[in-house]
């Protein structure tokens, strides 16, 4: 070993008295304080802005709205709840709107899960690195452009003389479309003015929120588990039902929370596409904005919160979170 005598071989001192160093040392020794400081801002955000507004909404749902003066009286009462569910004068009845919205949310969620699972499975298990990247991009790409633009684009796609009709015509599937549009309750004049159209656009818009959690859950299932299952004599379908599905179910539930709650709350898609009949979000918007009945709007917003809480507790009971 040759050493250059002009270069000192001593290390700089490990300890110094600079103020930054002293702060670092203090925080290192009091790691609780350090974590607290890091969490301060996000916690403020969550508690004040998020939970705070949720709480304010809950409080408002117990206020009373005076129909004649249009004033909100800040006193505790159940009036708004009674009005929301029993008032016979309301047109359309709120119960029908809630039913319609929940049905749509359920249909969209189930369809999204059925469509997303194979894609997520392919991404997690079979796609090579390049293919995987391309698929992630494909799934996320719609999120990069404006939601409104995409919804209006779909209105054109689904219109009576739109691309979809033209395409189905070329395939000779017009009888199928006509049959679908003739179905009482979900059909209509054209795709863009029927519940089927609303359903299709919801499905398209929320799909990424279903694919990504399922994919994340599937990525966490080790390949050796499916190998072990087939090694023990299980055919692929049995392996899917007994190993892959139970272990990725938390991902399906996570995805369904997104698709379900987003459908419950959305008011733009049903107002752009479809029969212009009310969905829950649009009803809240009208009560709050046009009518100024804040308590009723708050009640109608509490409804999806309650529905989601019931949904989550059922999912928990079903053991959806056991494998987490």
């Amino acid at each position: 070993m040759s050493t250059d005598p002009t270069v000192p071989t001593t290390n700089p001192p490990l300890r110094s008295k600079s103020p930054i160093r002293l702060i670092s040392n203090f925080l290192y020794r009091h790691s609780c304080l350090a974590t607290g400081l890091l969490l301060l801002l996000p916690l403020l955000w969550l508690v004040v802005i998020y939970l705070g507004s949720l709480g304010a909404m809950l409080i408002q749902s117990f206020y009373t709205y005076n129909r004649f003066t249009g004033q909100v009286i800040e006193e505790f009462s159940w009036d708004a709840y009674k009005e929301a569910f029993t008032d016979p004068d309301l047109s359309p009845p709120n119960k029908d709107v809630i039913k319609r919205t929940v049905r749509m949310a359920v249909a969209v969620t189930i369809a999204a899960a059925i469509l997303a699972f194979p894609l997520a499975y392919y991404m997690a298990r079979y796609a090579g690195p390049k293919m995987k990247g391309a698929l992630y991009l494909g799934v996320m790409l719609p999120l990069w452009s404006s939601y409104l633009v995409r919804v209006y684009a779909w209105k054109l796609i689904l219109a009576k003389d739109g691309v979809m009709t033209w395409f189905l015509e070329k395939l000779g599937l017009m009888p199928v479309l006509d049959w679908l549009l003739d179905i009482e309750g979900i059909g209509g004049n054209s795709l863009s003015t029927s519940y089927i159209g609303v359903f299709l656009v919801f499905l398209y818009v929320w799909m990424p929120y279903m694919v990504l959690p399922i994919n994340a859950a599937l990525e966490r299932v080790p390949k050796s588990l499916t190998e072990a299952s087939s090694d023990l004599g299980a055919r692929p379908w049995y392996t899917f039902l007994r190993v892959i599905l139970p272990l990725s179910f938390p991902g399906v539930v996570a995805g369904s929370i997104f698709t379900f709650s987003l459908t419950l709350g959305d008011y733009i898609i049903p107002s752009v596409i479809g029969t212009s009949s009310y969905f829950l979000g649009a009803l809240v918007f009208t009560q709050r904005g046009t009518v100024g009945n804040w308590p009723l709007a708050a009640v109608l917003t509490v409804v999806p919160v309650v529905i989601m809480m019931v949904y989550l507790s059922v999912a928990k009971k079903l053991g959806a979170f056991d494998a987490l």
Binding site: S224, L225, E227, A228, S230, D231, L232, G233, R235, A323
Partner: peptide, 28 residues
């Protein structure tokens, strides 16, 4: 694999995390 009369003990054990010991063993 599911048609061969062989069984494997995996390096990472590959036990099914959502099943208890009895159910794991009874799987085959």
């Amino acid at each position: 694999p599911y048609e061969r009369d062989v069984n494997t003990v995996f390096q990472d054990y590959a036990l099914f995390p959502h099943m208890n010991v009895q159910k794991n063993i009874a799987y085959g």
